[in-house]
Design a protein around this nucleic acid. Sequence first.
DNA 1: CGGAATCCTAACCGATACTG
DNA 2: CAGTATCGGTTAGGATTCCG
Lengths: 142, 142
Amino acid sequence: MATTTAAERREQNKNAYNAFLAVCPSRQLLDRLSDKWVVLILCALGGDGPGDPGEPAPLRYSELSRQIAGVSQKMLTQTLRSLERDGLITRTITPTVPVTVTYALTDLGLSLYQTTRRLRAWAQDNMDAVQEHRNRYDTPDT
Amino acid sequence: MATTTAAERREQNKNAYNAFLAVCPSRQLLDRLSDKWVVLILCALGGDGPGDPGEPAPLRYSELSRQIAGVSQKMLTQTLRSLERDGLITRTITPTVPVTVTYALTDLGLSLYQTTRRLRAWAQDNMDAVQEHRNRYDTPDT
DNA sequence: CGGAATCCTAACCGATACTG
DNA sequence: CAGTATCGGTTAGGATTCCG
């Protein structure tokens, strides 16, 4: 048994960082994480991909590009870099010809994936309900 | 007992919507949800506010504006409208003088809050780890 | 294959002013 | 108090081109 519980540590961090404050570093971090490409990339690497089995697995740049439909090469590279910088993913270069680059979740990234997967799942599971609310909101009502 | 289990229904929705597809409605929904103001507003209404007890409670416009530091009134109003349209929050007008407007989570909004609260908590809890990775990434390394 | 660099426009968003 | 409306700057981000 640890001398500090998870609840105690969370309490300490709660005092240290507060995302509600504009100047707090965690606010900037939340801004970065609140990005569709971040969510989709983490989901893809976590194994949530279209035909994937559900196991977290490394993916090549081209595989990510294919799975995440609509992402431009610029945004994909840019987002991957920031995720690597933040320690959420690793970038591994294999000097084949042509070169092979694979991305994989770190433990830190895996822990965040546990949340982003829920976000994506929520969007898919509740799409119908949201659409119904929109229709009712948009019709002038009889 | 229902004739369809939660797992079965989720499986059906999984086939219906896929956020990895650019044209899928759930992709657009995910784009909207992947927004810092959406996350912070849901967190505030869910009771995650600065000095809040942790209970979901309705908040007035001015209270939201105060809790979510740095949000412009334009973005606050705009985001609140879209959340109302999507059925995630309710907007209640009390005809006092001056008028009183309160916002509260719906059941749908409450279910999404369960995820956004984790996102905010993750940002705060792992800020130190991320910062450390950034420092190591940014230093040319000796 | 997996990028980097450049250009350029569409949108986001903040600031300001006005209203019921 | 709780907005709406308008304007204008910033920037996100797409398209294109080139490189190791």
